[in-house]
């Protein structure tokens, strides 16, 4: 079996947490497979990754892969809550992940955009990130994380926003001449306005994150027959967060009683393995430490401290289980290059 994912060399990308979840799932079920970091959606029937290829069968998408392997192994009975959790996590966490990676300007400009140069050769490395960026803009607007309209006096139509860095050096032939000081002031004000808007959406993103996490933990709690106490309030100051973290370490055993759900019980080939993997994959992606802005990680550590520490422990273990020997480089038609793209497009029209 081959699992085609987004990634580079021996690392699965955070841009599609379903890829990571699929790899963890297959590994946990002791299935013999290879991970191919192909980044080529043309080989998938639904133009999406992850894609599992078993002999001549192609299975795209996390829920399909889960269904396929559980049928093949005949190890467990389908559980409605598990399917519902997978659906809930995908529908609600995907826009948050897209916001974190593409719309949060720090993360997009300093991390996500640079990733694509590893995934695609010249010249595809230039147009693909923009395509993802515009897709993310549309998706996050469905949950209110980006305003669709650009104001009453918008003459650019419904086109997507252009990053400010792209605009600064634009020739302004018919503009009234302004002093450099005035220009600096205008840019500074514009940046301030942009930061304020971004802060507003970031807060909304955190509110949604809290809402979804609370709901998921409630479901875990009700399914395991336990009750969950409220997590401590969000602390605004970084210092206080650090203090809290230190206190948590000291009173770890005490803190762990906040959530009566023992994740270890749900782990392994148990009741909620597929939804657990997907949730962990999204948490890994949302709290990814290499991102310049780790606002979600800070929030999770403060608001859902015990759950986060427990989840991060599992994530570390899951990543360690994915040994380097599992990875395989893409070959011939699997490689996303111009020639393969041309062949694919030609096949569509012939």
């Amino acid at each position: 079996m081959e699992l085609h994912v987004w990634g580079y060399d021996n690392e699965i990308s955070v841009i599609e947490p379903e890829c990571l979840a699929s790899a963890w799932l297959l590994q946990s079920l002791d299935i013999s497979f290879k991970i191919v970091t192909s980044n080529n959606t043309n080989i998938s029937p639904t133009h999406s990754l992850p894609l599992l290829i078993d002999e001549e069968q192609k299975i795209a998408g996390y829920s399909s892969i889960f269904k396929f392997v559980s049928k093949k192994q005949e190890k467990k009975k389908n559980n409605l809550i598990e399917f519902a959790l997978i659906s809930y996590i995908t529908e609600n966490f995907k826009p948050l992940n897209q916001y974190n990676l593409y719309i949060k300007s720090d993360n997009y400009e300093k991390y996500t955009r640079k990733l694509f140069k590893n995934y695609f050769p010249f010249p595809m490395m230039y147009n693909q990130p923009l395509k993802f960026y515009y897709g993310a803009q549309e998706l996050v607007s469905t949950v209110g994380l980006k305003s669709e309209g650009q104001g009453f006096f918008n003459f650019n139509g419904s086109g997507a926003n252009v990053a400010e860095t792209e605009m600064v050096n634009e020739s302004t032939t018919d503009d009234v001449a302004i002093s450099s000081l005035h220009e600096k002031q205008l840019i500074s004000k514009s940046k301030q306005r942009k930061n304020l808007t971004e802060a507003r959406y970031t807060l909304k993103c955190l509110t949604l994150m809290e809402e979804h996490m609370n709901h998921i933990l409630k479901v875990y709690s009700s399914e395991s027959g336990g009750t969950r106490k409220e997590e401590p309030e969000v602390q605004e100051e970084q210092e206080e967060q650090e203090e809290n973290a230190k206190n948590e370490e000291k009173d770890e055993s005490k803190e762990n009683t906040n959530i009566s759900v023992n994740l270890s019980d749900n782990f392994g080939i148990g009741k909620f393995i597929a939804s657990d993997m997907l949730l962990f994959a999204y948490i890994y992606s949302l709290t990814f430490k290499e991102l310049p802005s780790t606002f979600i990680l800070n929030f999770m550590r403060t608001k859902f401290s015990s759950f986060t520490s427990e989840a991060l422990k599992h994530i570390t273990q899951l990543n360690e289980n994915l040994g380097d020997t599992l990875y395989k480089k893409p070959e011939s038609s699997e490689i996303p290059n111009l020639w393969n793209e041309l062949v694919y497009v030609t096949k569509q029209f012939v």
Partner: peptide, 12 residues
């Protein structure tokens, strides 16, 4: 909470 989850899944 389970009803909310199933309701969401049916809607999507």
């Amino acid at each position: 909470s389970s009803d909310i989850l199933i309701n969401d899944m049916m809607d999507t």
